[in-house]
Design a protein around this nucleic acid. Structure first.
Length: 512
RNA sequence: UCCCCGAUAGCUCAAUUGGUAGAGCGCCGGACUGUUAAUCCGUAGGUUGUAGGUUCGAGUCCUACUCGGGGAGCCA
């Protein structure tokens, strides 16, 4: 689908000129080829005396769209500079609109060259005006021959933390305010943006309503992990534990899931989805856990587990497809520098139907595998990471949906099967990342749900409004949760979840 | 939270059985060049994470702590 975009871009062919409106277009023209990243040629601004004096082209536009011969302005940050003693310099300029840099050629005759060119080193910010010309070099279609250049901000080479070389991700995490200026983190930012846009498109096209569930919640025991307390009380030993005087008059926390509230809307206005931050106060120190992360939770009435699995599969495949279609340059980078198998992995995801096996079948496979497990396999216990990895990576080699888990290891709200031993839960497992989606058909039968609350040791009083949904016009419904950052891990080949969110929050880490 | 590993120059890492701390890259300076992770030459740069301890002597051995990485659990 629309493969022409990528190939046209690779060939560096020109596309039809669509940016004739050189002056502050009210509506930003999104040209087809720029839809690669949907980066507009100009930042749209209302016309007026106080608006931007020099509409700067985005570098993606200059590289792939605008005809040679045009007078243009580019602004960005210097990646590297190469001087020639014959009287000119090359500057690689990047503005984040795409992976590639714009090559600037500055002749010594350009005003300010002698005084400032040495200051335009790695990290410095520039505005350059000049003529876009076809490049004699083989590595770029065009280059910008400067007639004016303005050094906007210097970056002292001795102290600027980013060097013209590879840095470790560990080091870059310590300079999270500068790491988006690197190739990898620029690419992640663009892919992440593409994924978020695709998420909204996916659900909007299917008639789902985007519903905003609360960040602050007083419903405890949602069963998804430790919660952060929200309080305005001074935390003295004497006041600890007494929330009657607190802001909300009872204990309040940051949400661990919007599911219960999403169910309210799903059972009122039809299919909905949430897309919001989520908080877990677990002391988790792994490559796939964050204290603050973004979760997408569709919730659909009149939906059973099979429908839910189908939706999850279509959802993940759409995310993959859009990344390949719209972030070709960034994905090529990930394939070359981050994970040599990422394109193969993603195409494999698109080309095959997700395998679906019941928990019971999974246990049988694990028992029959002949493998020595660190944690023994037995029906009724949770699948361990080593088990899930073996299933999705070695045995099937593709995404896998495991469904119908034992009732005893799953939360109270999942639909109880007729066997009275299992619930209609599903986990989507993918190679390298593990569990990326967890979901279920919800228990919509009042009597069964009440029994389950008791069984799980929960206070039914606390869930009065949740039970009301079953008391009045209850319907079968289902939904799931997708961890955005885990999806980004899957799509980019990145290893550590702290590197696919701009400002990671983990135990002992919230500097930026 | 548990298990394992680590912390030495701006960055990535070396340093024999405990004996005065090195390289590559980067920076800066010079040379060269329509260059493109440019290339070549040179300079500068370190209380070896913190606090104790053992020893004539500790980057190296011991203890505690801090931070980081990998794995596990919790989950998305």
């Amino acid at each position: 689908m629309r493969g022409g975009r990528c190939s046209r871009r690779r060939r560096g062919e020109r596309t039809e000129k669509t940016d004739k409106a050189v002056k502050y277009p009210l509506m930003c023209p999104v040209t087809e080829s720029l839809a690669l990243n949907r980066i507009p040629a100009f930042i749209p601004m209302e016309e007026g005396p106080e608006t931007m004096a020099r509409p700067s082209h985005r570098i993606a536009s200059l590289l792939y769209e605008i005809d040679p011969g045009s007078q243009v302005v580019a602004s960005g940050w210097v990646r590297t500079r190469r001087d020639s003693k014959n009287g000119f310099s090359f500057i690689e300029l990047n503005d984040g609109s795409c992976m590639s840099n714009l090559q600037i050629v500055i002749d010594a005759s350009v005003p300010g060259y002698e005084e400032h060119i040495k200051e335009a080193g790695t990290g410095a910010s520039l505005e350059v005006r000049g003529e876009l010309k076809e490049s004699p070099g083989s590595k770029q279609r065009v280059e910008l021959h400067a007639s004016e250049f303005t050094l906007l901000g210097k970056a002292d080479g001795d102290t600027y933390p980013l060097q013209k070389k590879r840095h470790s991700f560990e080091y870059l995490r310590e300079i999270a305010h500068l790491r988006p200026r690197t190739n990898t983190f620029g690419a992640i930012a663009r892919v992440r943006n593409c994924v978020c846009r695709t998420i909204h498109d996916f659900f909007q096209e299917r008639g789902f309503l985007y519903v905003h569930t609360p960040i602050i919640t007083t419903s405890d025991c949602e069963g998804a992990g430790e919660m952060f307390t929200v309080t305005t009380l001074d935390q003295t030993p004497s006041s600890a534990g007494d929330y009657s005087e607190d802001f909300f008059g009872k204990k309040a926390s940051l949400t661990v899931s919007g599911q219960l509230e999403a169910e309210i809307y799903a059972c009122s206005v039809g299919p909905v989805y949430t897309f919001s931050p989520t908080f877990r106060a677990e002391n988790s120190n792994t490559t796939r856990h964050l204290s603050e992360f973004w979760m997408i939770e569709p919730e659909v009435p009149f939906f059973e587990l099979d429908d839910n699995m189908q939706l999850a599969e279509e959802f993940i495949k759409t995310l993959v497809q859009k990344c390949l279609d719209e972030c070709a340059e960034d994905m090529a980078f990930f394939n070359q520098r981050i994970d040599k198998e990422i394109m193969t992995t993603l195409r494999n995801i698109l080309d095959n139907e997700f395998r679906r096996i019941s928990y019971t079948e999974a246990v049988d496979l694990l028992l029959a595998s002949g493998k020595k497990w660190e944690y023994p396999v037995s029906w009724g216990t949770n699948l361990q990471a080593e088990h899930e990895r073996w299933l999705t990576e070695e045995h099937f080699g593709q995404p896998l949906i495991v469904y119908d888990y034992p009732r005893t290891i799953k939360p109270f709200y999942m639909y109880c099967n007729e066997d009275e031993k299992t619930v209609r839960a599903m986990d989507v497992l993918v190679p390298r990342v593990g569990e990326i989606i967890g979901g279920s058909q919800r228990e919509h039968r009042l009597d069964v749900l009440e029994k389950r609350l008791v069984e799980c040791g929960l206070d039914a009083e606390e869930y009065w409004w949740y039970l009301d949904l079953r008391r009045f016009g209850s319907v079968p419904h289902s939904g799931f949760g997708l961890g955005l950052e885990r999806a980004i891990l899957l799509l980019t080949g990145m290893q550590n979840i702290r590197d696919v969110i701009p400002f990671p929050r983990t135990p002992k880490n919230a500097e930026f």
